[in-house]
């Protein structure tokens, strides 16, 4: 798998902590925004093939609502917010106080706009925590949201990695809440580009 993934336990633990801080901040934002308790799992860090990574999201054809935030600065990468479309609708309906709105309806621009804004806030707060923790400058690009097949979405985050490797490192955090009509389970994924790892470990004082 090459030198890129010659990681020891200490490296994996540090990446988990990075995920913990980023997703922790994002989960707090979500909870504040919707005024409901949201729980977060301990992040997992995996070195996976591209196919395995898509499986983590539920499989290549699974339809997911996603916000995708690219960032650059001291290093580059992507933050994803993944949730099933019907669960995303519950968030959207709370935000815009209209139970008829759905992101599964292509014409309901307000629902799509609310979902994008929600994802923007969450992925933005993930990124902000990351840059504070590592004391690096990371700039968010314009966020994008879409409802489509998980495989088609996730591979966008793999383009930069794919020029150097057939594997990628993914930092995944699951959040849950039982305070909705239907239980909510969503994912945050941090997918740093290959050059990022050395900088992350360097900032944390580990070679």
């Amino acid at each position: 798998m090459g030198d890129l993934f010659n990681l020891k336990n200490i490296h994996l633990d540090l990446l988990k902590e990075v995920g913990n801080i980023g997703a922790g901040n994002a989960t707090t934002s979500l909870s504040n925004l919707l005024s409901v308790p949201v729980q977060m799992s301990v992040p997992t860090v995996k070195v996976v093939s591209f196919d395995e990574m898509v499986e983590l999201t539920g499989g290549p054809e699974e339809v997911m609502a996603t916000t995708f935030l690219e960032f650059s600065g001291d290093f580059t990468g992507n933050v994803f917010f993944f949730i099933s479309p019907d669960q995303a609708d519950q968030f959207v309906q709370i935000l815009i106080q209209d139970e008829q709105q759905s992101i599964l309806n292509d014409d309901q621009k307000l629902a799509h706009s609310a979902f994008l804004e929600l994802g923007n806030i969450l992925t933005g707060s993930y990124l902000r925590a990351l840059s504070d923790f590592l004391q690096v400058n990371l700039y968010a690009h314009v966020p994008n949201a879409t409802v489509d097949m998980a495989g088609a979405i996730m591979t966008q985050g793999l383009i930069e990695t794919s020029v150097v490797s057939d594997y990628s490192i993914i930092i995944e955090t699951v959040f849950q809440s039982e305070h909705f009509k239907q239980d909510i389970k969503g994912h945050f994924f941090l997918l740093p580009d290959p050059g990022a790892f050395e900088k992350i470990f360097d900032r944390l004082g580990v070679k």
Binding site: F68, E70, S72, T76, H141, V142, N144, T146, D148, A152, I153, Q156, I159, E160, V163
Partner: peptide, 15 residues
């Protein structure tokens, strides 16, 4: 060969 997101950069641009 779709463009999944409107705004991307680097190698992803119009990939």
């Amino acid at each position: 060969g779709a463009q999944m997101f409107k705004t991307t950069s680097g190698n992803k641009l119009n990939i």
